[in-house]
Simulated assay, not measured.
Amino acid sequence: MELERFTRIAEAGDALPLARLVNLAGEGLPLHIWSTMAAPDQDPWEVGRERQAEKARDGQIHVVDFGEGPVASLTGYAIGPTPEPIGAEFPALFRPLQELENLALNSWYVNVLACFPETQGRGIGTHLLNLAEKIAADRGISRMSVIVSDDNHGARRLYERVGYAEKARRRCVSDGWQTEIQNWVLLTKEL
């Protein structure tokens, strides 16, 4: 299947499936975060939809859409040459993730790569990773990076199949989030 013709920049109207895809990629962590951000009478999914609509309006998300809305999404960004400070006030939940990002300086970071389960196995993840590499190369970035959980074997297989290798890992800090994840794993690839 020629996936390029089904790939487009996300629109604000895609916010609901985008929020679902982000939560899928983040193994439930996004919904936990949105729950902490929501007003007392606000649905946490509404927070997620608002955040994804904003990113879509800024042109930050690519999606695969076969005509009935996004079935997969890619969000990424450049990590520059300077590590982000991790001071005493830095939230414990995010500390291991930021420590790993700080080990991936000068890379294009795949922040979200997700595909709904019913469309997996069709080459969509590989297609979006190829797109991410093209975006990185167009910006003069010669290294890719991504963080996955140690128990997400499907994602790990996908990344390793296209040339990513483990660089480092950090213990997951749940800090009130109910999860089985033991470690976050940084994978990188030289282009």
Score class of each variant (00 low, 15 high):
residue 43 D to T: 11
residue 43 D to Q: 14
residue 43 D to H: 15
residue 43 D to G: 07
residue 43 D to E: 15
residue 43 D to C: 13
residue 44 P to A: 14
residue 45 W to Y: 15
residue 46 E to S: 13
residue 46 E to L: 13
residue 46 E to D: 15
residue 47 V to S: 02
residue 48 G to A: 14
residue 48 G to L: 14
residue 49 R to T: 02
residue 49 R to Y: 06
residue 49 R to I: 09
residue 49 R to W: 11
residue 50 E to T: 11
residue 51 R to N: 10
residue 51 R to I: 09
residue 51 R to V: 14
residue 51 R to P: 01
residue 51 R to C: 04
residue 52 Q to V: 10
residue 52 Q to T: 14
residue 53 A to T: 14
residue 53 A to L: 13
residue 54 E to D: 08
residue 54 E to Y: 07
residue 55 K to A: 14
residue 55 K to I: 03
residue 56 A to H: 11
residue 56 A to M: 10
residue 56 A to V: 15
residue 56 A to E: 11
residue 56 A to N: 12
residue 56 A to I: 15
residue 57 R to G: 09
residue 57 R to H: 04
residue 58 D to M: 08
residue 58 D to G: 03
residue 59 G to Y: 11
residue 59 G to F: 10
residue 60 Q to K: 13
residue 60 Q to P: 01
residue 60 Q to I: 01
residue 60 Q to W: 04
residue 60 Q to C: 09
residue 62 H to Y: 13
residue 62 H to F: 13
residue 62 H to P: 01
residue 64 V to W: 05
residue 64 V to K: 07
residue 64 V to E: 11
residue 64 V to A: 10
residue 65 D to T: 12
residue 66 F to V: 12
residue 66 F to N: 06
residue 67 G to T: 12
residue 67 G to Y: 12
residue 67 G to L: 10
residue 68 E to H: 15
residue 68 E to P: 08
residue 68 E to A: 15
residue 69 G to K: 10
residue 70 P to E: 13
residue 70 P to D: 14
residue 71 V to T: 08
residue 71 V to I: 15
residue 71 V to A: 04
residue 71 V to E: 06
residue 72 A to D: 04
residue 72 A to S: 12
residue 72 A to T: 05
residue 74 L to N: 04
residue 76 G to R: 06
residue 76 G to D: 10
residue 76 G to A: 08
residue 76 G to V: 05
residue 76 G to Q: 07
residue 77 Y to E: 05
residue 77 Y to R: 10
residue 78 A to N: 02
residue 78 A to M: 06
residue 78 A to S: 03
residue 79 I to L: 12
residue 79 I to F: 01
residue 79 I to W: 01
residue 79 I to M: 03
residue 79 I to G: 01
residue 79 I to C: 02
residue 80 G to W: 08
residue 80 G to A: 03
residue 81 P to M: 03
residue 82 T to M: 07
residue 82 T to A: 05
residue 83 P to H: 07
residue 84 E to M: 10
residue 85 P to R: 11
residue 85 P to Y: 10
residue 85 P to I: 09
residue 86 I to V: 12
residue 86 I to K: 01
residue 87 G to Q: 01
residue 87 G to H: 00
residue 87 G to Y: 00
residue 87 G to M: 00
residue 88 A to P: 04
residue 88 A to K: 02
residue 89 E to V: 00
residue 89 E to L: 00
residue 90 F to L: 01
residue 90 F to W: 04
residue 91 P to R: 02
residue 91 P to E: 02
residue 92 A to C: 00
residue 92 A to Y: 00
residue 93 L to V: 01
residue 93 L to R: 00
residue 93 L to F: 03
residue 93 L to C: 03
residue 94 F to N: 02
